[in-house]
Every structure is written in C-alpha cells, then in structure tokens.
Lab assay of single mutants.
Amino acid sequence: KFNKELSVAGREIVTLPNLNDPQKKAFIFSLWDDPSQSANLLAEAKKLNDAQAPK
C-alpha cells in the first residue's frame, strides 16, 4: 500500500510547476522518511504550489 501511495505522491510532487527543485527534493525526502504521511505531504506540497503560483 505505501509503495503505491509513495510513487503516486512522488510523481505528483515532481510535476508541481510552482515548486523549485529544493522544495520538491525536501518533500520527496520526507516521503521516503515516512511513507505513511504521503497523503498529508502531497496536500502540503499542493498548498505550497498554489501559494507560489504567479499572480
């Protein structure tokens, strides 16, 4: 279960257009550290992506 959630969340995070590479890497490392938090980490990444969207 975690492997699928981890890969789905990881793929989504790397495609978020408004995150820079260090931010993406930080989220990916957090996913590896605790795969059970993949849904929460993906939600946080999406929030940050939205907040950094060009206005």
Rank of each mutant, 00 (worst) to 15 (best):
K1W: 15
K1T: 11
K1L: 12
K1S: 12
F2E: 12
F2L: 10
F2N: 08
N3G: 12
N3L: 13
K4M: 11
K4L: 12
E5I: 12
L6K: 03
S7D: 09
S7R: 07
V8T: 13
A9S: 07
G10E: 15
G10A: 15
R11T: 08
R11E: 08
E12C: 11
E12A: 07
E12I: 14
V14C: 15
V14G: 06
V14T: 09
V14P: 02
T15K: 14
L16E: 01
L16V: 00
L16P: 00
P17E: 07
N18D: 02
N18A: 06
N18S: 03
L19M: 02
L19V: 01
N20R: 09
D21A: 11
D21W: 15
D21T: 11
D21Q: 09
P22V: 14
K24V: 05
K24P: 02
K25I: 14
K25Y: 14
A26W: 14
A26R: 08
A26P: 04
F27N: 01
F27Q: 00
F27P: 02
F27D: 02
F27C: 05
I28L: 12
F29S: 13
F29E: 12
F29K: 14
S30I: 09
S30N: 08
L31C: 04
L31M: 10
L31W: 01
L31D: 02
W32C: 13
W32D: 05
W32K: 05
W32I: 09
D33W: 09
D33L: 15
D33E: 13
D34H: 06
D34Y: 06
D34I: 02
D34R: 04
S36A: 11
Q37A: 11
Q37C: 07
Q37H: 05
S38W: 15
A39N: 09
N40H: 12
L41Q: 01
L42Q: 03
L42G: 01
A43W: 06
A45K: 00
K46N: 09
K46F: 06
K46A: 04
K47P: 01
K47F: 07
K47C: 08
K47S: 09
L48G: 01
L48C: 05
L48I: 06
N49R: 00
N49Q: 00
N49P: 00
D50Y: 06
D50A: 11
A51K: 09
A51T: 07
A51Y: 07
A51E: 11
A53L: 06
A53P: 05
A53Y: 06
P54V: 10
P54Q: 09
K55N: 13
K55D: 13
K55E: 12
